[in-house]
Amino acid sequence: MDRLEMFVEASTRLTGFSRVELFGTGAAKEYLETLEAVLETPVLDTLFAAIGDLVTDHATEAEIAGSILSDPVLAPIVKNVIVLWYCGTWQQLPDTWRASHGCSPKDTTRVVSANSYLSGLQWKLVGAHPPGGDMQGFASWSRPPRGEER
């Protein structure tokens, strides 16, 4: 399994969205590259070793919560990955984390790209669309929403 496959496979557990939905955003590669650009090699290797364990062990949600999401080094990165998928924005890592594990010039709070904004999962979730994109058509707003929340 290559890194991209591992990244997306782990992301399915983190986001609650399927592999097809995640690849469907067209942003998977861009998000992986964002991680590779921001993180220094040792951290990146630790992250992917942990991800590899999760993916091959078919970890349960409780196991994920108990492993990478409880790890002081990995948790901020993993949370950032979740936020990335949901809204396309990379958040600058916490100051304490940066002090210990490196401050990449790419580690700034920013929308990764126009596409990443437009493919944020948070809009699909509620039967809506990113403001300014994927418009739903005249009078669509007057109909009941077709999200999955009900």
Partner: peptide, 8 residues
Amino acid sequence: VAGTMRGT
């Protein structure tokens, strides 16, 4: 659920 986030 009120369908917020859609409209003008």
